[in-house]
């Protein structure tokens, strides 16, 4: 049997008509959403978008290239602070965004240099140290307002004729959609393949002609670039940034996001970021949840401490990390693929 195939199918963004249809529908819904829902929900989606962007970049590094970063909050911080500074200096938004992201990418590439010689455990320690060091350094620099932080100027979005929240929502979602598409293309290209080759066997990658150090550095740079963009937008979202915002725990939550979503998968990054953001918000007022909230308060009263309830967030994040690795190493994406396969065969 010989099938004459057009190989273009293999590199298209959408595998088939159905997925293209659903994607366009999804984008359409995103575009119309501001006219139907309250501003609060828009800001929830904005937060999700920020997490999606970081997750996309981190997943390229961790899931596709097989490196590790425990300091991604550091990159986000660099993006946020440099973006804020550039905009304060009067640079328009788009150039400021790109410049901040490029700066972050440059630092990412620099941090990637030790990765050329290091195996996993050492790299994880370096990146951990990096994340902490960034916060200390920024916290001591007067340009960035030191420990008190600095305010981020609002965007001039009046020309759109939309309320500020709505306009900001469009900025966030458009950026996110563009980055999702870029990531998909990148991973289908020779560059994405080279990343995955390095993940699976760096020795084999080098003998088939892949410049391993070049690509590892590049992967760090890309990952940092995404984090830089997310950081710059994060500043706009919060309107005020402090060193404490971008803590070590934030880095771990980013990691939890892609682990939960599914390592090495764009769908996973998106799913993971949406779910983690939602969970994070829900957990902040878990006491308000009908039945569960009462149970937790009662439990806290008798065994733990009611004033520390917010810490449930960390316990749950930790359990998610462990649980996914122990029971579903492919994360939500793996779960999704399995459900899809099940329904395709149903009812036979």
């Amino acid at each position: 049997m010989k099938l004459k195939r057009g190989y273009f199918e293999d590199i298209r963004i959408f595998r088939n008509r159905a997925s293209r249809f659903w994607t366009f529908l999804f984008i359409l819904v995103l575009a119309l959403l501001p006219f139907f829902i309250k501003a609060y929900y828009l800001s929830v989606i904005n937060l999700m978008a920020l997490n999606v962007i970081v997750a996309l970049g981190l997943n390229v590094l961790v899931g596709n290239t097989g490196q590790i970063s425990l300091g991604h909050a550091g990159f986000v911080a660099i993006g946020a602070y440099s973006g804020a500074l550039l905009m304060q200096l009067g640079l328009p938004f788009v150039p400021a965004l790109l410049l901040a992201a490029l700066l972050t990418a440059l630092i990412g590439a620099f941090l990637g240099i030790p990765s050329l010689r290091l195996e996993g455990p050492y790299l994880s320690i370096v990146t951990l140290g990096f994340g902490l060091a960034v916060m200390v350094i920024i916290g001591r620099m007067d340009v960035f307002g030191g420990r008190t932080g600095m305010s981020v100027p609002k965007l001039k979005l009046g020309w759109t004729g939309l309320p500020y929240d709505t306009a900001l929502y469009y900025v966030f979602t458009i950026t996110t959609v563009v980055l999702v598409i870029i990531t998909i293309i990148l991973l289908k290209s020779r560059i994405g393949r080279a990343f995955q080759a390095i993940r699976d066997s760096d020795i084999a990658a080098s003998v088939i002609g892949i410049n391993v150090s070049h690509y590892k550095t590049f992967s760090f740079a890309i990952s940092a670039f995404y984090a830089g963009i997310a950081g710059c937008l994060w500043g706009l979202y919060l309107q005020f940034v402090t060193p404490g915002t971008f803590s070590f725990m934030m880095s771990i939550i980013f990691l939890a996001t892609i682990v939960l979503g599914g390592l090495g998968s764009v769908t996973g990054s998106v799913l993971g970021a949406i779910v983690m953001t939602y969970l994070g918000l829900q957990l902040e007022n878990i006491v308000g949840v009908p039945v569960l909230g009462d149970v937790i308060v009662a439990f806290s009263d008798s065994l733990m401490n009611t004033s520390g309830i917010a810490n449930i967030k960390w316990v749950l994040t930790g359990l998610i990390l462990i649980g996914v690795i122990l029971f579903e190493p492919m994360g939500l994406n793996g779960l999704w693929l399995r459900v899809k396969r099940y329904w395709r065969l149903w009812p036979f």
Binding site: N311, W314, T317, L321
Partner: peptide, 9 residues
């Protein structure tokens, strides 16, 4: 890392 977070929480 997960265990670390659980204990911290």
């Amino acid at each position: 890392l997960g265990f670390q977070m659980v204990l911290y929480g």
